[in-house]
Design a protein around this nucleic acid. Structure first.
Lengths: 233, 233
DNA sequence: CGTTTTCTTGAACAGATTCAATGCGTGTGG
DNA sequence: CCACACGCATTGAATCTGTTCAAGAAAACG
């Protein structure tokens, strides 16, 4: 197997500040893997054997409750670590990770973690920073779900998606992976019906443009006003 | 200033597995502090200069949104670390920490963190484990808020409180610190009115017993059925 | 003893869900 | 290659859970 090229990851936060040979050391221990659209990298409750980095594509992190309800916890963007249960001292994954499009990932056996951690403190720090950010984001979500109306939550979610995975088109900014109304509902704690209704209304207002598994934001500013509940009712 | 006695902390997770002299090393660098009821250890957005351990008492972690809404993110129990922004690479606190009762805390300057981390890996691991647990709990909260009814959420919250800070009385298990209906509402994303109504109804059923800033759970099992939505309506 | 904070409870209202029916796209199999 | 079935999306109507508005009672505090 040819060694992975360090240019693949050199710019990414976890590798920033590492010497070329350190990056090579880490990459030599990685396995790369292609993950076809809609297949899972790992499943909730599964024993965590590895941790991962998303090289390309988009991954949806989904939690399922005992009674079958699903919640989309987040989307992983290119260059982000995920499935880092080992860094939190967990033995199982708290959620499933599903490829939203065809993806390429790197995987390291958990056994490598302690060495990476101690040998490359900046790598460890970046990982813990990632976890910290996710805790912060998740708390922000709780806050939003406690205080904001559905309309505002959906607007915020779209803005976040557009920011993380927006692709400019002639028509506005399009979310760069297929996403259903149902999934938007699972991100915002509502039903696909409500999402559909609101998107339709916004489409009439020219704020967004819908499509099958597609959303394009045409007027981000107006969407922001909606998210902040400062728009004319 | 007399050195703190190592028996204060020896049993606690962050110190487990450390040699006596290591514990002393860490304690020598700590400052202890008394925090009167209702006063803040630190405030949201404040620059994080230290990290903390709660020796005794109960601390409420509160997030306030730009528009003034408050959410109770969690309660810190005796023996837990809190305000560990430094371990997540944050420079400010994402929430405020308020003493629910008179508390005693230890504080370490953030500058000590890197040394503790590298010198006592088990201390670092315990800290990261704490962060991981909180992320996990917070995601569970999101899940609950997305899928469960208010009644179930309040029941779960009470059960969690009772588990973490329950004190047995002749009448049932009492939450061991003053907590208002408003605060329960802020934990569960509802209003004090709804909390009050439900607690009143449960009191009529003999499941709980209310009081000013006080809740006693008399029938945890029945409360569990409510939390799981498996009780007769 | 008056003032403030906490808690209770009724009534009206509303946002969002649920139920139901239908339409539209797209990918697959005959 | 076309038809059709399935997954995804839309939209109306009815319903309901929980909020909001309003008024007051009870407990603590200075």
């Amino acid at each position: 197997m040819p060694t992975l090229d360090r240019s693949l990851v050199a710019g990414l936060p976890p590798f920033r500040g590492l010497a070329a040979e350190d990056i090579d050391f880490i990459l030599e221990r990685a396995r790369s893997r292609h993950v076809p659209k809609n297949s899972a990298v790992f499943e909730q409750e599964e024993k965590a054997e590895s941790f991962y980095l998303l090289l390309s594509g988009h991954i949806r992190v989904v939690r399922t409750s005992p009674d079958g309800h699903q919640v989309v916890a987040r989307y992983i963007n290119e260059g982000e670590l995920f499935g880092i249960a080992v860094a939190m001292g967990r033995t199982t994954f708290p959620a499933s990770a599903v490829a939203a499009v065809d993806c390429v990932i790197l995987a390291w056996p958990n056994g490598e973690w302690p060495e990476f951690q101690s040998r490359f403190p900046s790598f460890g720090a970046a990982t813990y920073g990632t976890i910290g950010n996710r805790l912060e984001e998740t708390q922000a979500t709780v806050m939003e779900m406690s205080t904001a109306q559905v309309e505002q939550r959906i607007a915020s979610a779209l803005l976040r998606l557009v920011k993380q995975a927006g692709r400019k088109t002639e028509d506005g900014i399009e979310i760069d992976f297929p996403i259903t109304r149902q999934e938007i509902a699972e991100m915002t704690g509502t039903t696909l019906h409500t999402v559909s209704r609101l998107l339709s209304a916004w489409e009439d207002d020219g704020v967004v443009r819908g499509g099958r598994q597609k959303v394009t934001v045409r007027d981000p500013h107006r969407l922001m006003l909606i998210a902040e509940n400062r728009h004319r009712k």
